[in-house]
Design a binder for these strands. Structure first.
Lengths: 203, 203
DNA sequence: GTCTATAGGTAGATAGAC
DNA sequence: GTCTATCTACCTATAGAC
């Protein structure tokens, strides 16, 4: 206890493996990535991975669970700071896009594509987390439905808005000409135009 | 030549295999589906498949190419019949959703998830077709940008709208309470409200 | 904790009979 | 065109030395 104080907690091997798995699974798919690929990425022999995880699937589950849990935290932090209806809508867009495009990018992409390969037990756990994340967004949107800020057909609007947001994982490039914040603001202006800022409405 | 006249062209074995592959690849993924699975689905032995296709990947490519080509045709037919700006926008929504949720459902789902597993040569061909399909939508939207029907930031609007539409493949259930036509009309009303039909705007 | 070596299983693809 | 039989390669996972 007295010996040494950790300044920045170094990621342990397990976390390093999960992070590398996230990148590889996103790039080549879970089934397209072999444990040898993963071992090479973290400079181990393939057998050594099985000291840290019992199975390959356990690595996938760890990636998805960690990622989804952190995403909920990111979103909730944004929502907690939002007061007006428009701020809340903005928080949903910024928080969600930040989670899926930046911080937990790999986990979101992989869970979307590869959740079907999970065993029933793992699938249940992961899908429950995914549903929980989405329920935070849905209930926040539900609150807005009476303010007049969003259309009255909440279900269809929710499907439309979340679809547009979720699809960004397919095309958004972090090194492109659009920051995540700009994208969120741009989308916000499409669904709830700020009438004070009329530049974009003038012809 | 004189012997018999085909009334309805029976799908030949090759087409039967492609169709079964579409269902299996969508359900279990391309890599998660073995040639033995596919052979069983069409009541053949696994070796017999290789009389019709040289490799497993060739089956995937055939599925995607056929599907994307037909999708372009579906969309263009809809667009050709549309006159007013709002009809054109409606044609985009109806045509696109019909293509990806009904007629070429399997191909769209699979190309989205599994295109990365294709060899570079096959990938190039398939992506070119995908781009061509999308360009038909994009240019139709571009035409609408001067009519005032859609927002002036066409790029962001296009990304937003196509994202919402494309994402429907993730959640739309053909046997649910929403027909594809109803979905298209509902989305149309969100992006370009019909002011004559004010029921939905009244509070 | 990581290594080497390999077991045990299954994948895509081929050969040749019919 | 389809079958049976099988090849080769590679996969996940394990065993035991260090």
């Amino acid at each position: 206890m007295a010996r040494s104080r950790k300044r920045t907690r170094l990621p342990n091997r397990r976390e390093i493996i999960i992070k590398a798995a996230g990148r590889l699974f996103r790039e080549k798919g879970y089934e397209g990535t072999t444990v040898r690929d993963l071992a090479e990425a973290v400079k181990l022999q393939s057998g050594s991975l099985f000291f840290h995880f019992d199975t390959k699937e356990e690595i996938l589950v760890a990636l998805l669970e960690d990622g989804l849990r952190r995403a909920v935290a990111i979103l909730d932090r944004r929502l907690a700071n939002a007061m007006t209806p428009r701020e809340k809508l903005s928080a949903i867009l910024h928080g969600h896009l930040e989670a899926i495009l930046d911080e937990e990018r790999d986990a979101f992409y992989v869970v979307l594509r590869d959740w079907r390969t999970l065993s029933p037990a793992s699938r249940k756990k992961v899908i429950a987390l995914r549903d929980e994340y989405e329920s935070h967004i849905s209930s926040a949107l539900e609150e807005l439905s009476d303010t007049g800020l969003i259309p009255r057909n909440t279900r269809l609007f929710r499907l439309f808005l979340l679809g547009a947001l979720n699809w960004t994982v397919q095309w958004y490039k972090p090194d492109g000409d659009l920051t995540i914040g700009q994208l969120a603001d741009g989308f916000l202006d499409l669904v709830a135009p700020d009438r004070l800022n009329t530049d974009q409405n003038r012809k």
